[in-house]
């Protein structure tokens, strides 16, 4: 099942809403009010004021040039605009030629880092790769146990220390173990931290330093997980994490509800960080590679 099929039910509500609004607007005279309605729909999808008005401005220009005649045109044009922006960040992760490929998952509290780590592991296992978890969240109560349960279910190795120990030491041991055991992919699951806590960002930098010292080029992927239900603050998260850790990829979790994660349009435009995955459900298989077309389609257009 494709990404669009998976999320279209979740996105149905907005899509329908957007569609109805555009239809409704077009029933009257095709005038400026249509664009206000489109802007509203975009803002309601968490696209933000700036991005929304920019998109609408572009549509308006197309309309003035006589390129838009009916409802279908408007929807298609909007879809194309969004897809065009997102296309640039549609870059799947590639582990070719790197071993052990090291992924550091980071993000604020409760976005779904651990679940995403487990789902990512599953995609590699399905491709015959050997995966190892590093339980670097030594802070949150039972975070190590949580990852251990996943390790057991997936049948992958896990390196863990005691709660409260140094996460950088866990990362170091994980890499050592991976090299010794012929592991293909190491996934280091870190503790959630708000991007505004500078001491915790420093801790993260230390983990990164230790990892790169042990294995040159590592971490090969610094994967920031963002929560699709978040609003404009997600942009702030990307900005701050990127500034201090140079994020190389994004995963958008929890896209199976009614939230649209419209903020990724702004993120794609301004940070150009590849979006690797989207999380679309609670099951292990509910992680899909990001597709610009599907995302734009699901947001705006019907099938």
């Amino acid at each position: 099942m494709g990404f669009f099929e998976k999320i279209k039910n979740g996105l149905k509500k907005t899509r329908d809403e957007l569609k109805t609004r555009i239809q409704w607007a077009l029933k009257g005279t095709f005038d400026e009010s249509v664009f206000l309605d489109i802007e509203e729909a975009l803002i309601l999808s968490d696209c933000g004021v700036e991005t929304s008005s920019k998109l609408v401005q572009k549509l308006r220009e197309k309309w003035k040039r006589g390129q838009l005649k009916d409802e279908k045109d408007v929807r298609l044009a909007l879809c194309e605009l969004v897809e065009e922006i997102l296309k640039e960040v549609e870059k799947p992760i590639s582990i070719d030629g790197v071993k052990p490929f090291t992924i550091l998952t980071i993000g604020v509290n409760g976005v779904g880092k651990t679940t995403t780590a487990a789902k990512i592991a599953k995609t590699f296992i399905d491709n015959g790769k050997k995966v190892l978890f590093g339980a670097c969240d030594t802070f949150r109560a039972a975070a190590i146990e949580q990852l251990s349960v996943w390790a057991e279910r997936l049948g992958v190795d896990i390196v863990k220390h005691k709660e409260g120990s140094d996460p950088a030491a866990v990362a170091y041991d994980s890499l050592k173990a991976a090299q010794a055991r012929d592991i293909d992919v190491v996934i280091l699951d870190t503790a959630g931290r708000l991007h505004t806590k500078s001491n915790l960002m420093e801790e993260m930098k230390k983990i990164k330093r230790v990892v790169s010292k042990e294995l040159s080029g590592a971490p090969h992927e610094i994967l920031l997980v963002v929560d699709a239900t978040n609003g404009q603050n997600a942009i702030q998260q990307v900005k701050t994490f990127h500034e201090s850790l140079q994020v190389s990829g994004l995963a958008v979790a929890k896209l199976d509800g009614t939230a649209k994660a419209g903020f990724i349009i702004h993120v794609a435009e301004f940070f150009k960080i590849p979006i690797r995955y989207v999380g679309v459900g609670e099951k292990l298989d509910d992680l899909l590679p990001f597709s610009a077309r599907d995302f734009a389609k699901a947001l705006i257009e019907e099938e």
Binding site: K13, I43, D46, T229, G231, N233, A234, A259, K260, F263
Partner: peptide, 12 residues
């Protein structure tokens, strides 16, 4: 509810 929730807070 997560204080960072966006427009969807209303639906939730």
């Amino acid at each position: 509810l997560d204080g960072m929730t966006g427009q969807d807070a209303v639906n939730i």
